[in-house]
Every structure is written in C-alpha cells, then in structure tokens.
Amino acid sequence: MNPLVHQTLVMQLQTGGTHRFPVLTHLSYDAADPFAVTAVFSHDGRVLARWRLDRQMLSDGLRGPVGVGDVRFSPTGSSRWEELRMEFFGDSHPDGARHHAVVYAWAPAVAAFLRKTYDVVAPGSERVHVDDFLAEVITDG
C-alpha cells in the first residue's frame, strides 16, 4: 500500500468581512509522519501558505469547534452545503495585530481525504519512532 495520500481541492479564502475567492489546496499525508496533514494553499501559481495540521484535530473539526491557538476548525453551513471553517493566525504586524486567514472547505471532500489516510494508518495506531526522532534532533542541533 502506498504510504502517501494526496488530494487537491478548491477551497475559499475569505478576505475582509465577506469576500471569498478560490484557492487551490494540496492536502498530503505521509505514513512516516502519521499525526500530520500538510495543507499548501496557492492562488495564480503562487504559494500563499503551508501549514502542518494535526490529523485528529482536522477530523474533530468536522464535527465541532476545536483549537484555541494559531489553528482553529469548526463545521459551518447547512445540511445541504456543509463546510469546514479553518481559521489561521500568523505572525504579528508592527501594530500588534496578527496575520489572520479564514479558509472554507467542502466538508465531505475533507472527510473523504481523511478516510484515505485511515486506510494507510488507522486512527489510534499511529506510532512515533523515538530513536529516529532523537537522531534527527541531534543531527540538526
């Protein structure tokens, strides 16, 4: 079985108070990093942001609000059009305000991606290889 899962989705980036525009989003999952999903957001061929997301938190966000720090997820919409609202907070501006982005994804598409990742590494069976992690930290440090 392939230890990698990739999916490309069109999501909506909300700017200002109400305006949304489409962003191409590449979701990827690697069994070698079983707790994380990488999301790369791009527009007009330019990468806007790259985030490593907690896979369980992403799943939980489809059912209810989660997150209190830089990343927050919550379901929104009607039963006909269910969305996952993803809120990201970045570095501070000189005036003290923080960079902030809200992205909306069609929830069934995110759920389908997660199901594919569960085929690779079932929830609860994730393992961290501590020896490999320590070797990497020592090599980089």
Rank of each mutant, 00 (worst) to 15 (best):
residue 2 N to K: 09
residue 3 P to A: 14
residue 3 P to H: 13
residue 4 L to A: 13
residue 5 V to Y: 01
residue 6 H to Q: 12
residue 8 T to H: 12
residue 8 T to A: 09
residue 9 L to R: 08
residue 10 V to C: 15
residue 10 V to R: 13
residue 14 Q to S: 11
residue 15 T to M: 13
residue 15 T to P: 10
residue 15 T to W: 14
residue 17 G to R: 13
residue 18 T to K: 13
residue 19 H to D: 10
residue 19 H to T: 09
residue 20 R to L: 12
residue 20 R to Q: 12
residue 21 F to I: 09
residue 22 P to Y: 11
residue 24 L to K: 15
residue 25 T to F: 07
residue 27 L to K: 02
residue 28 S to D: 08
residue 28 S to R: 08
residue 29 Y to P: 05
residue 29 Y to D: 03
residue 31 A to T: 06
residue 32 A to G: 07
residue 33 D to G: 05
residue 33 D to S: 07
residue 35 F to T: 04
residue 35 F to D: 03
residue 36 A to S: 03
residue 40 V to T: 14
residue 40 V to F: 08
residue 43 H to T: 09
residue 46 R to P: 01
residue 46 R to V: 03
residue 47 V to M: 09
residue 47 V to G: 05
residue 47 V to E: 09
residue 47 V to D: 04
residue 48 L to W: 07
residue 53 L to M: 05
residue 54 D to F: 05
residue 55 R to W: 00
residue 55 R to G: 00
residue 55 R to E: 00
residue 58 L to C: 01
residue 59 S to R: 10
residue 59 S to N: 13
residue 61 G to R: 01
residue 62 L to F: 08
residue 64 G to Y: 00
residue 64 G to D: 03
residue 65 P to M: 00
residue 65 P to N: 00
residue 66 V to W: 01
residue 67 G to N: 02
residue 71 V to R: 03
residue 72 R to Q: 04
residue 72 R to W: 01
residue 73 F to L: 02
residue 74 S to D: 04
residue 76 T to W: 13
residue 77 G to E: 08
residue 77 G to H: 05
residue 78 S to M: 05
residue 79 S to N: 14
residue 79 S to K: 14
residue 80 R to V: 08
residue 83 E to A: 15
residue 86 M to R: 02
residue 87 E to K: 03
residue 87 E to H: 06
residue 88 F to T: 09
residue 88 F to K: 06
residue 93 H to W: 13
residue 93 H to C: 08
residue 93 H to D: 11
residue 94 P to F: 06
residue 97 A to E: 10
residue 97 A to W: 12
residue 98 R to P: 07
residue 98 R to A: 12
residue 98 R to S: 11
residue 100 H to K: 06
residue 101 A to F: 03
residue 103 V to E: 00
residue 107 A to V: 10
residue 110 V to K: 02
residue 111 A to W: 12
residue 112 A to V: 08
residue 113 F to Q: 00
residue 113 F to L: 04
residue 117 T to D: 03
residue 119 D to M: 12
residue 123 P to A: 09
residue 123 P to H: 09
residue 123 P to Q: 11
residue 124 G to N: 06
residue 125 S to V: 14
residue 128 V to T: 09
residue 129 H to M: 07
residue 130 V to I: 11
residue 131 D to E: 12
residue 131 D to T: 10
residue 132 D to M: 03
residue 132 D to Y: 02
residue 137 V to A: 10
residue 137 V to T: 11
residue 138 I to N: 13
residue 138 I to L: 12
residue 138 I to R: 11
residue 140 D to C: 11
